[in-house]
Design a protein around this nucleic acid. Structure first.
Lengths: 341, 341
DNA sequence: TTGTATGCGTTATCAC
DNA sequence: GTGATAACGCATACAA
């Protein structure tokens, strides 16, 4: 099944390849008659241009690379969904790579994308990433780069994210206003930009309401097993403080919060009467668990969509050799108050 | 930042482009000395071959296309994960597309992948797909095609899947042996290959144990809102039969089962004392809900991994102009018995 | 308005 | 062992 080429069309019509090319690309300097002839024949023979040849010629691949720490994750899979759908609308294909939150892998994958000559790159950083040379390299080569969710201020590029600090602040403030005073913080690695900001939001709320910060109420999960971390540390929390001296848990992810709830549920500690639980992310499951989880509603599909939109704009600018002005987009979050608080 | 080319290396070394190319590709007819010189210089200048030019020349893109009905789904995101990780190991990049269970979109996306000249395609069919010309087209063009999970026997290509009928049969048999007799079936669209087979498995188990099939115990969800379907039809089930005349629910997905459980939990129907609940797929959440859900354990990462392995084999055969013999791989499932039965 | 010539960077064939 | 040359298919500056 040999593919039809411009050359084939040209010989059949007894005209030159360049005229055929121009006709198909709608250039003005082709007579209406020949244009029609070319287009008709192309349709008849089901001609599709060889995209690889075109790529070589134009130095564009109409392909973008996306790096994500984990695919199997309600938040990220929604982001990916947003990215892919929008990209397709604009005729771009998405190459998806998973860094596994591993710095070395992330670095290697950026190199792969560079070699692949993608037109642009979207990345959410691995937790481990503290060195940014690999990202600078992308920029030096001149490939538009946009970060989403897990970003770093060390790199001057466009970013799409939420205000983690503010979101956490609002959640914890809500708890305090509701009368909760001894609020445990169930966090994840402070090395990660998002989580350290959520921690700051927690502290800010305490400060503002003049509640002393109590270090013994802080629990940090350093690995990825959030559910069990939530479950086990809920147990530890009760051991450490008894359930009379703690009246709420603010968890930085819904999965942690669900783990916490599971422990309380199976140990006759009632939510929210004995202890309230607040999550983060509005995962589908948070409505499903009993009692339904109060949580921070975080836009995920929207985030992916916005990120790719900006990237595509920058790709366009880049191809027109115009200056790119990095922008930082902060998407709105809100609180979903349900039964657990 | 102009990329280094073979030509650059050649002029710097005062040798020809073809020699440089051969040296880098390890051809035997290059003296050890020049080979070393070339390789050293390439390393020094950080030369990376232009992959697009190479693609044009070799007619391979080292890219594979993956079509999935839904990305945001615990099962599929795990499959995707398996695919991507394995592909990367072999130096292949994955272009991911979501059909949204829409036939027209699926067709369009296959065309996109053809145009993109991917070396192979992995597809899980949309529920709507009953016409298979678009898949035949892929085969005619000569692009290796492998189906996973949602397959069709109408196309003669390799397939990787589980035995849905057997899995359902085993689950329902287990329930019957445990003493449950009035087992409701909570299914999804019978148009889908998987679900119709699960239904057959259900019926087979009843037959074998001489339990009469009761049409009024069959509930089918035609849309995608599985959770609410489970919840609402649990309600309907109780209305229709009362909870004395039904003692178990076999749901064809965990999400449905979780919806069912939620209804029972919030209406003082105890699981499994009043009614048992069995799910399908071993979603992470099935361990988390209370009571923990018994379910069919379905390999997901493995399925993706196996599918891409076969595809890569076929790509290799294809490039060597060798015959491809389609194979059908059935992966093993098992039962995870937990608290809900 | 149309055609010619050239280049994108790599690879493969075939002389030398 | 090395190099000149063509080819992959398309796009464009320039000539006619």
């Amino acid at each position: 099944m040999p593919q039809i080429t411009l050359h084939d069309l040209a010989t059949k019509l007894n005209i030159s390849v360049s005229t055929v090319s121009k006709a198909l690309k709608g250039y003005s300097d082709v007579s209406a008659k020949t244009r029609k002839a070319v287009i008709d024949l192309a349709k008849e023979l089901n001609f599709t241009p060889n995209i690889v040849a075109s790529n070589l010629r134009t130095q564009q691949t109409h392909t973008i690379g996306v790096i994500v720490p984990t695919i199997v994750h309600h938040f990220f899979s929604n982001v990916i969904n947003g990215i892919i759908k929008e990209a397709e609308k604009s005729g771009y294909m998405v190459i998806l790579l998973q860094s596994n939150d591993n710095y070395e892998l992330e670095k290697k994958q950026l190199d792969l994308l560079i070699k692949q000559q993608v037109d642009g790159i979207l990345i959410s950083l691995s937790v481990e990433t503290t060195n940014f040379e690999h990202l600078e390299k992308v920029q030096q080569i001149g490939i538009p780069l946009v970060m989403y969710d897990k970003i770093s201020d060390a790199i001057d590029c466009s970013k799409v994210l939420i205000d983690d600090k503010k979101a956490a602040y609002e959640a914890v403030s809500y708890l305090i206003r509701k009368g909760y005073k001894n609020i445990a913080y169930f966090g994840a690695s402070l090395q990660a930009h998002n989580f350290s900001n959520r921690f700051l939001g927690y502290k800010q709320a305490l400060e503002e309401f003049r509640i002393p910060f109590d270090d013994s109420l802080i629990y940090i999960c350093e690995n990825n097993d959030e559910y069990n971390y939530g479950y086990n540390n809920a147990e530890q929390l009760i051991k450490d403080h008894g359930f009379k001296n703690v009246d709420a848990v603010f968890a930085v992810t819904d999965v942690i919060a669900v783990g916490v709830s599971k422990f309380f549920n199976t140990h006759s500690i009632s939510i929210p009467q004995d202890i309230a639980v607040f999550g983060f992310s509005n995962w589908f499951m948070s409505t499903v668990v009993t009692p339904a989880l109060s949580t921070v509603n975080q836009p995920n599909y929207e985030l992916g969509k916005k990120a790719i939109e900006i990237l595509l704009e920058e790709i366009t600018l880049n191809e027109a050799k115009k200056e790119i002005t990095p922008q930082k987009i902060i998407l709105e979050t809100s609180l979903n108050i349900r039964e657990s608080t």
